[in-house]
Design a protein around this nucleic acid. Structure first.
Lengths: 229, 229
DNA sequence: AGCGGTACTTTTGTATACAAAGATTGGATC
DNA sequence: GATCCAATCTTTGTATACAAAAGTACCGCT
């Protein structure tokens, strides 16, 4: 793997997990020395992170990790809802033609399973893996490179926000039911239902995150412990 | 201006205006020599163009200008419709609070003017400038940095596609009316009407482009002459 | 004649030296 | 004491040399 890739992944991971919190200033030489590589691959990594919007140039002083506000999170979800509803719409339309019904049926069956098992802490990781599989299946069924690229552009920002909220058991059971509805709509080929169910799920997710933020008295640092994911 | 910026703008311009058509392979040393600068700023420019999706890496052979197909154009507009309808929705909601009603009223008045003047060739440039002003006003009223960033990501691709279509008088008059409807909906604060009017306009624009492409027997090279814009 | 391997060429990846631009701090002057 | 200017220092921007990796072509072998 290239040094620039390693630097990019590491810096991004540190930002996403709040080890380098918003407002932190990064300089080229400083990071080059810390990571034990030269400025060239660091510049490459910086430019990718800047293009993603995780860093913004600070005139003559290096790059700053983007701030995160309540409004920013709302804006993020506003775009996310538009994009993922569209993706769900397309997926529902294409699932049959792409012979992906089986894949969604499998996910559906496993979701039914996890709805009962979710209270067991051990199952949490598997549950998040299942949601990741659903996301991947949706991506595959969306078949629109531009839409996918826009969603992927948003993902790192969402990952950073996710660190702020802790999913409790109640919310997880609810989310599982919402996912079930989405999957069922896609299997049925009902595009508008898929879009609406996605909207419902995302708006409830947003509310859950905002509740966590407000309960913590604003955005300061991520929640600690195994609950966050 | 930095050498990397100059290189980026020039390379991008050449791609957008089909002087470097899809499929062209670009190498670092080659472009560095042509533009009279070193490889470092060229790499910077290449990485930005790659992030935008105008170039894709070709293993061990440099970077290749992204291909453009009929389906690609449809995908592009699918995303564009989702994004700009959302932007129009937000703009209609915010226009009053942002005190931007006057700006849209001005654009409205000028649109009414151009609807009559549009057949004069001299007015074409001014008309496109007016549409650009409308776009800018919409951006300002959208107030969602993530949504805007997604739209801006799409713009260069749309610019490249625009070179393929020639707007005839009939289409221009029609487009002016569609723009009028959008502006009126925003002034009225009617979010859903603004979104629907935007959808109408963009779907008709897409059809006009596809008609041009099909009439030319596929995507080969851009139309020549003053008509394209 | 086809296949495989090796050497060579081309291309990208990295390090580093140097240049330029901007910010900050110190001093001098009003 | 405040302000402006200048020198210095920090930081990014650019060029270039070198390393590594990948692709290609050629040659020998089967």
């Amino acid at each position: 793997m290239r040094a620039s890739d390693k630097a990019y992944l590491r810096l991004r991971d540190e930002i996403l997990h709040w080890r380098t919190p918003p407002g932190t200033v990064l300089a080229e030489v400083e990071q080059a020395q810390r990571l034990g590589i030269s400025r060239t691959p660091i510049r490459e990594a910086f430019s990718r992170l800047t293009a993603e919007g995780l860093l913004v140039p600070l005139a003559g002083r290096g790059l700053v990790v983007t701030e995160l506000s309540r409004e920013t999170i709302i804006d993020m979800f506003e775009l996310r809802i538009a994009l993922e509803c569209e993706a769900a719409r397309i997926a529902a339309t294409n699932v049959e033609r792409l012979s992906m019904t089986d894949e969604f049926e499998n996910i559906h069956a496993e979701l039914l399973n996890y709805e009962n098992l979710i209270e067991l802490g051990d199952e949490l990781k598997s549950y998040y893996e299942l949601v990741a599989r659903l996301d991947a299946a949706l991506d595959a069924a969306a078949t629109n490179q531009f839409l996918l690229s826009a969603i992927n552009q948003l993902r790192p920002h969402l990952a950073r926000v996710r660190q702020l909220a802790r999913d409790n058991k109640t919310r997880l059971v609810e989310a599982a039911r919402e996912h079930l509805t989405i999957v069922e709509a896609i299997i049925a080929g009902d595009a508008e239902l898929a879009a609406d169910a996605t909207s419902v799920h995302l708006k409830k997710s947003l509310n859950n995150i905002l509740r966590s933020v407000d309960a913590a008295g604003g955005i300061s640092k991520p929640l600690q412990g195994k609950g966050a994911a």
